Simulated assay, not measured.
Amino acid sequence: MRRFLALAVALVSLIAAGFLWTRDRPVAVATEAAPAAAPAESEAEDGALVAPVSDVTPADREARRFARYDKNRDAEVSRDEYLASRRKAFARLDTNGDGRLAFEEYAVATVKKFGKADRDGDGNLDADEFATTAAKRRAAPACQCSP
């Protein structure tokens, strides 16, 4: 029992020390532009952390999106190429395979998603639970190594 009490006191002390150490630190403001710094730098002159700046431009991002759709690499996206991703999503929802999506088939997927998000099972989503329903973006691969 004494060990548990000593551990609890030590834990509270560490939390309090961390709070006191960080309370006077400057907080980054989202409206300020990030200073132009080399990507390898993680701290500014004043010791504040600087977020890394992405070198991917909107034009590059759009070119990558176009390349994902252009399966045959002919520099044109055909109607079939454009609809391919939607066909896959439709096929996942069309559980009876009749080529028609009934409301019940659509609702099953939606109800499952709601059920996973409703962690406390009260039938309502609070802000934290609702945030889990947002579409997840896949992380880019860390390495583009050739085999």
Rank of each mutant, 00 (worst) to 15 (best):
P52M: 08
L101K: 03
A33H: 08
A30D: 13
A75S: 04
Y82M: 06
E32R: 13
A75P: 03
V50Q: 10
R61P: 13
E105F: 13
D46W: 01
E41L: 14
A34G: 05
R79H: 00
A17F: 15
A28Q: 14
L49N: 06
P26H: 06
D74F: 01
T110S: 03
F114I: 07
P26G: 04
P39G: 01
A44N: 06
A40L: 05
V50I: 14
A117N: 06
V53C: 06
L93D: 00
A36S: 14
A59I: 10
R25C: 15
A33L: 01
T57P: 06
V50R: 14
T31Y: 13
G115F: 12
P26D: 05
L49T: 08
D74A: 03
A91F: 05
T57G: 03
S54W: 13
E41R: 12
K71A: 05
D98L: 00
S42P: 00
A91G: 02
S54N: 15
A59N: 07
S85V: 06
K88P: 00
A102G: 08
A37M: 08
R61I: 04
A107M: 03
A30Y: 14
K112G: 09
P26T: 03
D24M: 12
E45N: 10
F114W: 09
K71H: 06
A16F: 11
A51D: 10
V77F: 02
V53T: 07
S42N: 03
R92Y: 00
A107K: 05
E45H: 10
A67R: 02
G47R: 01
V111R: 15
F19C: 14
A40S: 12
R23D: 03
L49Y: 10
A38E: 04
G115H: 13
A63T: 11
T57N: 06
F103E: 05
T110A: 01
A63K: 11
G97M: 04
L14R: 06
I15Y: 14
R86K: 11
A51L: 11
F103K: 11
L101A: 02
R61F: 09
T95H: 04
S78E: 03
L49K: 13
S54M: 13
A28E: 07
F19I: 15
E76V: 00
A34K: 11
W21D: 05
P58I: 04
L93N: 02
S85C: 04
E62N: 13
A44Y: 07
N96I: 01
A89V: 07
K71T: 08
K113G: 10
F103Y: 14
G47N: 01
A117F: 12
Y106W: 10
R73H: 09
A109L: 12
E105G: 10
D80P: 02
P58L: 12
L83R: 02
A89L: 04
K116I: 13
V27Y: 11
T95K: 02
A84Y: 01
G99H: 01
E62Q: 11
